[in-house]
Measured scan of single mutants.
Amino acid sequence: QTQEFDNEEEARKAEKELRKENRRVTVTQENGRWRVTWD
């Protein structure tokens, strides 16, 4: 699953929550947008 964010702060917040659920999370930056991908 993927979700896009406008800034790193929001993306990192989402990453932190997903990691609490023991998910594999990848955060990438593309064209000024932050993308959080998880399984």
Rank of each mutant, 00 (worst) to 15 (best):
D6Y: 04
N31A: 07
L18W: 11
R33Q: 06
R24V: 14
W38Q: 03
E10L: 08
E30T: 10
G32V: 02
E10T: 05
E9T: 09
W38A: 08
K16V: 13
E30M: 13
V25A: 04
E17F: 10
G32R: 03
Q29S: 09
Q29V: 12
D39W: 15
K13S: 09
K16L: 13
V25H: 01
E9G: 08
R23S: 10
Q1K: 11
R24E: 11
K20R: 14
D39T: 11
T28A: 06
N7G: 04
E30R: 07
N31P: 02
T28Y: 10
T28W: 13
A14M: 14
E21V: 12
D39I: 12
E30A: 10
A14G: 02
E15V: 10
R35Q: 07
T26I: 13
F5K: 00
R33V: 12
V25C: 05
T26A: 07
E9V: 09
G32L: 04
K13R: 13
R33P: 01
T2G: 06
T26G: 03
T2R: 06
N31M: 07
L18E: 02
E9N: 08
F5E: 00
G32T: 04
N31Q: 07
V36Y: 01
E21F: 14
T26H: 09
T26M: 10
T26S: 09
R12C: 05
L18K: 06
E15T: 04
Q3D: 05
A14H: 11
Q3N: 05
R12H: 05
E21Q: 14
A14F: 15
E9H: 11
V27W: 01
W38S: 07
E15I: 08
E21I: 13
G32E: 04
E10R: 03
L18Y: 07
K16F: 14
T37P: 00
R23Q: 11
R23C: 10
Q29C: 10
E10N: 05
A14Q: 08
E8I: 04
Q3H: 11
L18I: 04
N31V: 02
W38L: 05
A11P: 01
E10K: 05
W38D: 04
E17P: 02
L18F: 08
E21P: 06
T28M: 07
T37M: 07
K16E: 11
V27G: 00
Q29A: 07
V36R: 00
D39N: 09
N31T: 03
E9D: 11
V27Y: 01
T37V: 10
R35V: 13
E9S: 09
N31Y: 06
R33S: 06
R12Y: 08
K13G: 06
E17D: 07
T2I: 12
F5P: 01
R24D: 11
K13H: 12
N31R: 04
T26N: 07
K16N: 12
R35G: 01
L18G: 03
W34M: 00
E9P: 08
E8G: 02
E4W: 15
F5S: 01
E10D: 15
K13L: 13
V36M: 03
N22H: 13
Q29N: 12
Q3V: 12
E4Y: 15
V27H: 01
E8V: 03
Q3G: 03
N7I: 05
N22K: 09
K20V: 07
A11N: 00
W34H: 00
N7T: 15
V27E: 00
E17R: 13
G32S: 04
L18S: 03
R23D: 06
E15A: 15
E9F: 11
V36H: 01
D39H: 10
V25T: 04
T37Q: 10
V36A: 02
K13N: 12
R33Y: 08
D6K: 05
K13V: 12
Q1F: 15
L18P: 00
D6A: 08
A11R: 01
D39Y: 15
V36Q: 01
T28L: 07
Q3F: 15
E30N: 07
V27I: 09
E17W: 10
V25M: 02
K16M: 14
L18T: 02
W34G: 00
W38G: 03
V27K: 01
E15C: 10
V27T: 04
K13E: 11
E15R: 02
D39V: 12
Q29E: 14
W34R: 01
K13P: 01
R23F: 15
E10P: 02
R24A: 11
T2C: 14
W38F: 06
E21S: 13
E17S: 09
W34N: 00
N22M: 09
N22G: 15
K16A: 14
R24I: 14
R12L: 08
E21H: 14
D6H: 06
N22P: 03
E8H: 03
G32Q: 04
K13Y: 11
N7P: 00
R33N: 05
D39K: 05
K16G: 09
T37N: 08
V27S: 02
K20L: 14
Q1M: 13
R35D: 01
F5A: 01
R19N: 09
E17M: 13
Q29L: 12
E8L: 04
N7A: 04
T2F: 15
R24P: 07
R12T: 04
A11G: 01
E15S: 05
N22Q: 08
Q3M: 15
E10S: 09
R35P: 00
T28P: 01
V25P: 05
E8D: 02
F5Y: 13
E8N: 02
R35Y: 12
W34F: 04
A14D: 01
Q29P: 06
T28I: 12
K16T: 11
V27P: 01
E10I: 03
K16I: 13
L18H: 09
T37H: 10
R24M: 12
R33G: 04
N7L: 07
K20P: 03
E10M: 07
Q3P: 02
K16H: 13
Q29I: 10
R35L: 13
V27D: 00
A14V: 14
E17V: 11
E21W: 13
E17Y: 08
N31L: 06
D39G: 10
T2E: 09
E8K: 03
A14L: 15
N31I: 03
W38H: 05
T2Q: 08
A11M: 02
Q1P: 06
N7V: 05
T26L: 09
N7W: 04
R12P: 00
T2W: 15
R35H: 06
E10A: 10
D6Q: 07
A11E: 00
E15P: 00
R23A: 13
R33H: 06
N22Y: 15
K13Q: 12
E15L: 05
E4V: 15
R12D: 02
Q1I: 11
E21L: 15
R33W: 07
E30I: 13
L18V: 03
E15D: 02
A11Q: 01
F5Q: 00
V36D: 00
A14P: 00
W38V: 11
F5W: 04
W34K: 00
V25Q: 01
K13D: 10
G32Y: 03
Q29H: 14
E17N: 10
R35T: 11
R33L: 10
T28R: 06
E4R: 03
W34P: 00
A11T: 02
K13M: 11
E8T: 01
R35E: 02
R35I: 15
T26W: 13
W38I: 10
D6T: 06
T28K: 06
T26F: 13
T2M: 14
E9K: 08
R19S: 09
W38N: 03
R19Y: 06
A14Y: 15
E9C: 07
R12W: 07
N22E: 05
W38K: 02
T2S: 13
R19A: 11
K20E: 10
T28E: 07
E30Q: 10
T28D: 04
E4L: 15
A11K: 01
A14I: 12
T26P: 00
F5R: 00
T2V: 13
Q3C: 13
R19E: 08
V25W: 02
W34A: 00
N31E: 08
L18M: 09
Q3R: 12
E17C: 10
R33E: 02
V27C: 07
E21R: 12
N31H: 07
R23T: 11
